[in-house]
Design a protein around this nucleic acid. Structure first.
Lengths: 238, 238
DNA sequence: TCCGACCGTCAGGGTTCCGTCAAGGACGGG
DNA sequence: CCCGTCCTTGACGGAACCCTGACGGTCGGA
């Protein structure tokens, strides 16, 4: 079928594991890394939200029983700004708990103790769903007169050579390119790239927009593709 | 893969239930209809595939134990042409079965006997995931003989070229266009653009209406689209 | 005809916003 | 432990934008 585990992935799928029980985390991390996932782990809700914003995982495994905050609150906190798949783990078998978590925005609910094979299969299903349509309407490669952006491979080319971008530069570029032609407000840009707690630090945008332009624009002083709309935000045009 | 045929925004979610046990089907149909889903039912795999193609459901509930064909084959048959969410029902608790079904393309796996509340919650989750992004490609474009306004992209075009608007100009235009054909009072205009504490500063309106007309009207001295209603307010006509 | 109310136009000044540069700190690899 | 990369932060000049006041024009009523 479609890349279950074994094949060589372009970029490894990033998983964020949130659980306060060390042995569960260890088991998950070992199994995930063996299958070439990139794994981050957090043992409380606050760290989890922070890590999610910082690392932008492709899927999240969340234990509802956290020491610092209610698991449902973590779900809501994430859903406020991202649609990343969330797979909930819980010792509670109660139907109400499941309904609450799912309606808060979770994608799946697995009760402990769980079979590792099943969990991994559900994880694959969640990731697969979130993938862009392979041959479909979504354009994966965007070309301009000056450079090329491959959203799937996370690569940028210019004059036949690869351009090296830092993680933050790439995130910023990705958000802009995914909204080609549309104006993206500075607040939205900040929240999507730096996390939901940002919104006024427009100097970040100024610095990183300058770096993108320096690396990609033919004439960085007179940008043709990364256009500033004063007081509102930025717009990518190809 | 939503709304394959042209339909109106508020259509009920269409569910296709595939199960050979009449009592299960009945229970599902009753519960779903009570929640305003539109339900189709099939008792075997062949009928199911046919119905899925004919009715384009928004979500499918599939029992793996069918009389005529293996449930996994049904999943593969569906996945050959659609990404519609598939929620699998099964009496088998075996981990292998789950993994096989999920890797074949199922979105979720519920073992019988199941709680109706949980099933409905998982169904909601599956449907929600498939929804297009909320702020997405609405393509709200208003055209006049002289210019074009794209509300979603915050873009204004004239003679094929983009017109640059300042934040205040854009905001004013937005309010007027959202009330196309209707008179918008000066007080309302001031409050929506400048904030609730404004209401008498009509000179602001005069200045910014003039700028909009200069940028968008073919003959700013004799406006055709931004019409003044003396003593009352302004009106946008396309 | 005079007058007042209302609107359109223009230009200057204060303020906000943006691009640029550089320095300092956090982090990870050698 | 050092070094390179990346992110953050502050400062500053210049550009863009918003507010403001003044003037002239039109229209209707006294």
């Amino acid at each position: 079928m479609l890349s279950p585990t074994g094949d060589t992935p372009r970029t490894p799928t990033r998983v964020l594991v949130i659980d306060d029980e060390p042995q569960i985390v260890r088991a998950l991390v070992i199994n995930l890394k063996a299958r070439h996932y990139a794994v981050d782990a957090a043992h409380d809700g606050a760290t989890a939200l922070q890590l999610a914003a910082a690392r932008h995982p492709d899927v999240i495994v969340l234990d509802l029983g956290l020491p610092d905050m209610d698991g449902v609150e973590v779900i809501k906190g994430l859903r406020g700004w991202t649609r990343v798949p969330i797979l909930v783990l819980s010792a509670r078998h109660s139907s109400d708990e499941k309904v609450e978590a799912l309606d808060a925005g979770a994608d799946d609910y697995v009760t402990k103790p769980f079979g590792m094979d099943e969990l991994l299969a559900r994880l694959r299903a969640a990731v697969r769903r979130a993938e862009p349509v392979p041959g479909g309407e979504d354009e994966v490669v965007v070309e301009t007169a000056d450079f090329t952006v491959d959203l799937a491979a996370k690569k940028v080319g210019r004059n036949g050579k690869d351009v090296r971008l830092t993680p933050t530069e790439w995130h910023l570029l990705e958000v802009l390119v995914r909204n080609t032609g549309r104006l993206v407000g500075q607040k939205q840009l900040l929240q999507e790239v730096w996390g939901p707690s940002y919104g006024t630090e427009t100097n970040y945008l100024r610095v990183y927009m300058a770096q993108l332009r320096r690396k990609l624009e033919a004439d960085p002083a007179h940008p043709r593709h990364f256009i500033t709309e004063p007081g509102m935000g930025y717009r990518f045009e190809r």
